[in-house]
């Protein structure tokens, strides 16, 4: 395959950089509104949460108020807010009191581990099954896969997780249902996410395979005298993988959303779990930090998909 030319790469990265900026602005604005909309006694409640109701003094409440920037005028406050945001200065969690950045550093490893495991598992499950089904459309595997994929797509991630918990840990007692970061704890949440992702990529791969196998160039490959396996390897695989990888980008929306819910279900100590907790307790600094990091993860994954497509599809290198 020819060398990747420079123009499309810089265009892709430029657009993704722009998307990252949009993420930052959206998260910044929403959290700013969030802070402004906190009710008057919010500072008191957060202080109470931190120090215990018995210990709350007006000093503590004022400290919280200052920390959150609840005083001050609109435009200046917004400018300050974004200045801090772009310096990655999210402040400290109003619940735990620890710097948000430090907490995120711990959580990020868990979330990345879970996401990578889920993506790998789904890539091992989905596309091979989809391609096998697509090579014999209407066959037993194809029909079975259609039913399985339709059922899986009708179940939200957390329900798949719930069912897995009930089946595996209760029924067989092999794997722990929930818990912290160990490999044995990783299996169920990763499988939960992978089943959802795999169901979709299996369908995409199946449809792409059917389309490619019916294409004039596939037929021409056969008529040239190539064996069925050779036609698949030379003209099938690459042409099927282009839409499958492209579609991964769309699926990453589901992955990030799934991470938020599945981490909470399995008490997996990642960013999604932290985000949900922070939203529940309206811990704005943590919300800001975690939402920003998750948004950036989404942008990075999309950029990776774009580059993979560029590498796989020589048509894009040519243009």
């Amino acid at each position: 395959m020819g060398p990747v030319s420079r123009i499309p790469v810089s265009r892709i990265l430029g657009y993704r950089l722009f998307q990252a900026l949009l993420v930052a602005v959206t998260v910044g604005l929403l959290t700013f509104v969030m802070v402004r909309s906190l009710p008057g006694d919010m500072a008191y409640r957060i202080a109470a949460g931190r120090y215990g109701y018995d210990m709350v003094s007006s000093d503590a409440a004022n400290a919280v108020r200052a920390e959150l920037g609840l005083g001050g005028g609109g435009a200046a406050a917004l400018a300050l807010w974004f200045l801090d945001l772009f310096r990655l200065d999210f402040g400290e969690s109003v619940i735990s009191g620890r710097p948000v950045l430090e907490e995120i550093r711990h959580q990020l490893g868990h979330t990345v581990g879970l996401s990578v495991a889920a993506i790998l598992l789904s890539v091992l499950l989905g596309p091979p099954l989809g391609i096998a089904a697509g090579l014999r459309p209407g066959g037993a595997l194809d029909r079975g896969l259609l039913v399985a994929a339709s059922m899986l797509r009708a179940l939200p991630h957390f329900v798949v997780g719930l069912i897995l918990i009930m089946l595996v840990s209760a029924g067989l007692g092999i794997l722990p249902a929930a818990g912290h970061g160990g490999t044995e704890n990783l299996v169920l949440p990763a499988l939960t996410l992978a089943l959802g992702l795999g169901a979709v990529s299996a369908r995409v791969a199946r449809d792409a395979m059917v389309q490619v196998a019916a294409s004039p160039y596939y037929a021409f490959g056969r008529v040239k005298g190539l064996s069925e396996a050779r036609v698949f390897l030379r003209h099938g695989l690459r042409n099927v993988s282009v839409p499958v990888v492209t579609y991964l980008g769309v699926q990453f929306v589901g992955l990030i959303e799934g991470v938020v819910v599945v981490e909470s279900l399995f008490a997996w100590p990642g960013i999604g779990h932290a985000l949900v907790h922070a939203i529940f307790s309206r811990d704005v600094p943590v919300i800001q930090g975690t939402a920003l990091v998750m948004g950036m993860m989404f942008v990075l994954l999309n950029a990776a998909v774009d580059l993979a497509c560029l590498w796989l599809d020589p048509r894009k290198q040519a243009s």
Binding site: F18, Q19, L22, V23, V25, T26, V27, L30, T31, V33, M34, S37, F252, V253, I256, E257, V260, V261, L275, V276, I279, R282, I287, A291, M294, G295, F298, V299
Partner: peptide, 18 residues
């Protein structure tokens, strides 16, 4: 693009927090 930059559930979550 602005509304697509962030996965939808994150947007809904943050509005739910507001």
């Amino acid at each position: 693009d602005v509304f697509m930059a962030l996965p939808g559930l994150l947007l809904v979550l943050m509005l739910a927090a507001i």
